[in-house]
């Protein structure tokens, strides 16, 4: 980690926690305000995009229905949970290593592809 980056990581942690908590709170308070936009890719090709179902999953999470959220959009639901934990860790002073493990990059691509395949097979 380079000098002066510590406050940025703390800021990312605090902003991440606030964003996730704030989004869920707004969706819980005003569920009707979350306009579920039609996915342009699905409209054009009938194939869902990798983030299709995100709004519905977040609405389910805001209602406390984590299982439905996981079924609707596994990647985003897991990402929200892990993102909140990682944000709390960063805000508390935790740090990621400067150089990530070489396996993480292909793993990230694989996870996104696997989630997309699930959405396509599930007929979203």
């Amino acid at each position: 980690m380079q000098a002066g980056e510590s406050p940025i990581w703390r800021g990312i942690g605090a902003a991440g926690m606030a964003s996730i908590a704030g989004a869920l709170l707004v969706l819980w308070a005003f569920p009707g305000a979350a306009g579920v936009l039609a996915c342009p890719l699905k409209e054009l090709t009938s194939v869902p995009c990798p983030t299709c179902g995100t709004t519905r999953a977040l609405l389910a999470l805001a209602k406390g229905d984590a299982w439905s959220a996981l079924r609707l959009q596994p990647l985003v639901t897991t990402g929200v949970g892990l993102g909140f934990l990682a944000s709390a860790w960063l805000a508390a002073g935790g740090r990621f290593p400067g150089r990530a493990h070489s396996v993480l990059r292909p793993l990230a691509a694989f996870v996104v592809a696997a989630n997309w395949l699930y959405l396509i097979l599930d007929g979203r």
Partner: peptide, 11 residues
């Protein structure tokens, strides 16, 4: 990732 335009480019 959000808009899936990678797929559109692919098509």
């Amino acid at each position: 990732v959000c808009c899936g335009f990678v797929a559109i480019i692919g098509i």
